[in-house]
Every structure is written in C-alpha cells, then in structure tokens.
Design a protein around this nucleic acid. Structure first.
Lengths: 213, 213
DNA sequence: ATGATTTTCGGCACTCAGTGACGAATGGCA
DNA sequence: TGCCATTCGTCACTGAGTGCCGAAAATCAT
C-alpha cells in the first residue's frame, strides 16, 4: 500500500520516478468517484499525480487499467497457493480454500475495495476492461485443474472449472459490493459451496441469502 | 440472414436505408479476417458497405458491436424458451434444454459462426466488448432462477447460476471454436452436465474430452 | 405535379484515448 | 567533471466516437 518509499534499493541509477502506479491509482479512484469515469480525462489523473499525460501511459497501458492493480496481485497469490496445495485435497475444495485465503482484506482496506468494485461493476467501460484480467484468473484455476486431472489445459473441463469459479466469485463480489451486510468471505464461501454442490434446486432455494451469523 | 429485402413493410415513409446492420456485419467480418480487427478502420467497413463512416455509427454504437448481432438475438430466444418451461422441471435442467435449443445452427451458418467466435475469443479488444452482451445473457438466466426459487433477482444464488451457466457455455464455445472435432451442442451439453454434477473430481477426470460418438 | 413531411445519409468539426520519436532532466558512478 | 542510466515532457499523429446541420430520397396530401 505505502511501500513505495521504503522498497527502493536506495541506489538506483537514473532519474527517480516522479510518481508511482499506486499514486496514480489513488488519484484516479478519487476523480472517478467525484466526476465519473468517462468524465475524467487521463490528463486530469496525470495532473493530480503531478505528472504528464504521457507518463500515465508508461505506468498503465489504458485508462481503465488503473483500477486493476490489486486484482492482478491477488491472482498471483491464488496461483502460488494452489501450487503448494496437498495432492489429496479434492480439486474444488483446494480452489475454494485458495480463493478465500486470497480475499482476506484488512478492515482498513475495505472502504477502498468497495469503491473500486462498485466502479468496476457499474461503469460499462470498466466492466469491459475486466476481460483480460479475468482471463489470467481463469487460467490460474484451469492450469491447476489440468495438472490435477492429467488433462491438457485447453480441454473442456479445466476451462469449465476456471470460468465457473470466477463466475461464482464475481457473483459474490457484486452481491457484496451492492449491499455489505456480511463479510466478503462469507459470500465467496457460499457461492463456491453452491457451485460444488451442483447448483441443485434445494441448495438454491434453501436460504434467501447467506446473511452473517 | 437474407431477410432484409422481404421484411420491408413496402411502404415506409422516408428515404430508404442505404445498407443494413447485417450487411455491415458481413463486410466487417470479411475485413477483420483479412487484415485483423485493429488494422481495420471503421471507414473501411463503411466504404465496403457503400456508406459513410457516420452512418456506421448509426447502426452500431461501437466498432466492436458489429459482431454481436446474432448473440443478442440468441439471448432473446433463451429468454422466451425459459418463459414457457414447465414448472416441474429442475432449474438447471430447464436451463440446459433452453441453451441447447437456442444453439442449433444450420450447417450453412456454421463456418461464419466459427469465424466470428474465433475473432471474439482471440482479439482482446473484442473479448472486452463482450461484457455488456454477456450481462444480458446472465440476467436472462438469473431472472428465471429468481422466479423459480422465489428470491429477488439480485440475491446471491440467482447471480451465481446465471454467471456459472454462461461460464460453462463460454468454455464450450472456446473449446469448440479452437478445435471443431464435435458438434457445438455436444460440448455445451457436456459442460452444463458437469456444472450440474458439481464439478467433482471423478466427473472432471472421466474422459479427456467429450469427443463425438 | 407540386409542396409538405419523414427518414436516412454525408460532411464537418470536435474531444479524447493511445502511440512513437526525440531530446531534456535528474540521479549515480568513475 | 564527464559518462551513463532512467525517467520525464513535448510534439505530432491516427483513429474511435459524438453533436450538429443541411442535403437526399422516399411517401402522402392537395
């Protein structure tokens, strides 16, 4: 979060950076919330971080990418968690544990997380930018399933599991960001358990919603 | 497909259209295949249809929207099929039947379908444009699940089912467009059955792929 | 047939995202 | 002080998408 100052090796060679990816993200998040995504120009984001427009595009490939930093690191967390998972654990159970472990946010980070997720699911242009990032998540799951089931990664079932797991998690995210009456992890757990149970009618009709208990 | 000429009420009031959404789609599909999506400008698509750039944007809101015509009508098909489904059928079973019924393409349309799907899953910019169209599909499923389970549409389980079903179908689409060794419906059926079975380890490891039989 | 009405089209001008090129700025190092 | 590495800013350019307005092409009424 604020590890930009300390994480410097202290002796770098060239001109020091005038900003950071994180600083641009914070500025963008604030401006998007104040005036909307489409109404905010890249010039404004760059100016808020005290840097030029061209420099913004050296940190991010596109205007919408500025909100996907933390998500991408979360994918890496899941990938490494799955790599260390014991071989006797059922596939979906291993995936569920890894996803839950990667989504434990400290209370201080929750408000920002909520604002970011609300933007990502509300603004169509931002929702569109999700595709490439979701792809990385799905591949992390699919690769694990393929290893465990001894199938090539491009075959049907690994693909299904990867995408279905992401779909369940996105449903939990949306449900949580729309109305935060319980911990995010509770929703993720309920969604993934329903998926593993086969989405049968009795599971679906059981409780209106997994309210906190 | 070619119902543009006949479907005219014969006496319309103003200047007749110089092209059609379908004609623009065909021109775009050809150009995208020849030179790539990003390398094709809207000017070229419009010129190929004998119309101006400005007119293209009267038929489609964005360059990428030009390939989503048939998908959107398919969503409407699924929606109406689910509306007529008998009440005693299990939810996932009803969804599976509706999806399979909506995906019966005639042999003549298959080559174009394949080219379009390959583009949509290959070009990142086109994959990004999928979000809003997928959203409509998911809502069609979620609304049905919500009705059947007596829950509000925004609650967790309808969301999960809607997204998970789409996820399974997308996996089948990709698997099929990458290597067409079986009918599309076979892959869709296998993916949806696996989802309903709970994605357990024995299901996933059963057969490498549901090759045609 | 002529004019009014209706609908689509074309051209123009504009904003903004994204990219490539190039030189200037700013630090460490010999 | 000179050399090198890295980041930054400026400029110029392409292309997507939008608003505006007048022209074109058809039907309808008189």
């Amino acid at each position: 979060m604020t590890d930009d100052v300390l994480a410097r090796p202290a002796n770098r060679r060239g001109r020091p950076p005038g900003t950071s990816a994180r600083e641009l993200e914070v500025a963008a998040l604030r401006l998007f919330g104040e005036q909307g995504f489409h109404e905010t120009t890249v010039d404004q984001i760059a100016a808020a971080a005290g840097v030029s427009r061209r420099t913004f595009f050296r940190y991010y490939d596109a205007k919408a990418d500025v909100l996907w930093n933390e998500f991408d690191t979360e994918v890496e967390t899941i990938r490494s968690l799955l790599a260390e998972t014991p071989a006797d654990l059922p596939v979906l159970e291993a995936v569920r544990r890894a996803v839950l472990a990667a989504n434990h946010y400290s209370a201080a980070d929750v408000p920002e997380l909520r604002r970011r997720m609300t933007l990502l699911s509300t603004v169509p242009e931002l929702a569109a930018s999700a595709a490439v990032h979701y792809d990385a998540w799905e591949r992390a799951i699919s690769a694990f399933v393929a290893r465990r089931s001894g199938q090539p990664e491009e075959s049907l079932y690994p693909l299904v599991v990867g995408r279905a797991v992401l779909a369940a998690c996105r449903a939990a995210y949306d449900r949580w960001s729309a109305r935060a009456d319980a911990d995010l992890v509770v929703y993720l757990d309920a969604a993934l358990r329903a998926l593993a149970a086969g989405l049968t009618d009795d599971v679906l009709g059981a409780e209106p919603d997994p309210v906190a208990e």
